[in-house]
């Protein structure tokens, strides 16, 4: 374990000292910052509700799942809160039990649609325990496509780029033959691989969370994002090792990476643009499943069953790729 961490730390240290690698690491973050300016309305994704303090605790909880909640006493106070400059919807319950929305009238888009949807959820829900997850989708629909596809493609990019970080570090070890120096220490081959992989597991997770923080995508399910990112990292790892082993120097590594990006973008664009009936032609690509997963997480339309299905598909397909190239990888690391 000590060795795995040392290898991971060395890779990291070495990576941040090289412009190209540093750039690969921060590019997705920079893109997220750029995207942030194009989609100011991503901001309005975080909804605000002014809830009457007399409302049921269950109702408050339900609303707080979709946005920021302020508890306010009485209709007058709610009205004056709603009249303030930002977009906030007041919600209270009338004597007869009916819900009432209080709005300024100049709110963006169909701001009333979401609270209505939430309320109808609560009311139809009183009997049945299971909540229909449709409520999630109503929020996704309100997101501009550029926010959905922009953010999911940047996260995917962060994942794939971390594979490139592995690849370039392996190329460095091969070129400088430092791997030979390691091969005459007690270090096991598996420790070497694990040390290199650690980069691909940690880096994209950090980046993914920084990206959604920059883009203010506060309403998505963090655990789902974590699982999806880690599952997708396996693809990046395989790519990274393949690039590292097949390329004899950095230039060749970059060329191979460009080729690989083609495969990544084809999977992404296919998943986004192909009609449902054609999607099955992409099922073989683990990146297809990552794309679908990330998009649904960003849109908040993914169920846990979906996430597990996508993750298992990714792992299975990646494993097949690994089996195909196992011999090559093994040989490449001993040289």
């Amino acid at each position: 374990m000590k060795r795995i961490l040392s290898i991971f730390k060395r890779d990291f240290k070495s990576s941040v000292r090289e412009f190209l690698l540093l750039y690969i690491i921060i590019a997705p973050i920079l893109l997220a910052v750029g995207l942030r300016f194009f989609i100011p309305s991503v901001n309005s994704i975080s909804l605000q509700f002014a809830l009457d303090s007399k409302l049921d605790q269950r109702v408050v909880e339900e609303f707080s799942r979709y946005g920021r909640v302020e508890i306010i006493d009485g209709i007058e106070a709610i009205k004056s809160r709603v009249n303030k400059v930002d977009d906030i919807v007041g919600v209270m319950q009338k004597e007869d039990g009916k819900y009432q929305l209080i709005m300024e009238g100049n709110e963006k888009g169909n701001y009333s649609f979401i609270p209505q949807q939430i309320i109808s959820n609560i009311t139809t829900d009183s009997q049945s325990v299971n909540k229909p997850s449709i409520a999630f989708s109503s929020i996704g629909i309100n997101m501009p496509p550029i926010a959905i596809y922009g953010s999911s493609s940047i996260i995917l990019m962060a994942i794939i780029f971390s594979g490139m970080v592995i690849g370039l570090n392996i190329i460095e070890e091969k070129e400088a033959k430092t791997i030979e120096a390691l091969n005459v220490t007690p270090m096991q081959r598996l420790e070497f691989i694990a040390g290199k992989c650690l980069t691909a597991f940690t880096l994209p997770v950090f980046q993914a969370f920084i990206i959604i923080w920059i883009l203010k995508l506060n309403n998505l399910n963090y655990s789902m994002l974590l699982i999806m990112t880690i599952a997708s990292s396996f693809i990046a790892i395989i790519f990274g090792f393949l690039i590292g082993i097949l390329s004899s120097n950095q230039i060749a590594g970059i060329a191979n990476f460009k080729f690989l990006l083609l495969f990544v973008s084809a999977s992404f664009v296919g998943a986004v643009a192909l009609p449902a009936s054609m999607q099955k032609f992409l099922y073989w690509s683990p990146l297809y499943w990552s794309t679908i997963g990330l998009i649904n997480i960003v849109k908040n339309t993914a169920s846990w069953l979906d996430i597990w299905t996508y993750s298992i598909s990714i792992l299975g397909l990646t494993f097949i790729i690994f089996i195909m190239f196992k011999g090559k990888i093994k040989k490449g690391l001993s040289a």
Binding site: K2, R3, S6, R10, K13, S14, R17, E18, E172, A176, K177, T178, E180, A181, L182, V184, T185, P186, M187
Partner: peptide, 28 residues
């Protein structure tokens, strides 16, 4: 076992002392 190589194979982006430090971490 200690091995000194004919062609110097060290990490170019690490300092001399970092190279030795990293290598020492491989041994038990």
């Amino acid at each position: 076992i200690g091995v000194s190589f004919e062609r110097p194979n060290v990490y170019k982006k690490l300092t001399g002392i970092e190279n030795l430090q990293f290598h020492s971490e491989m041994f038990s």
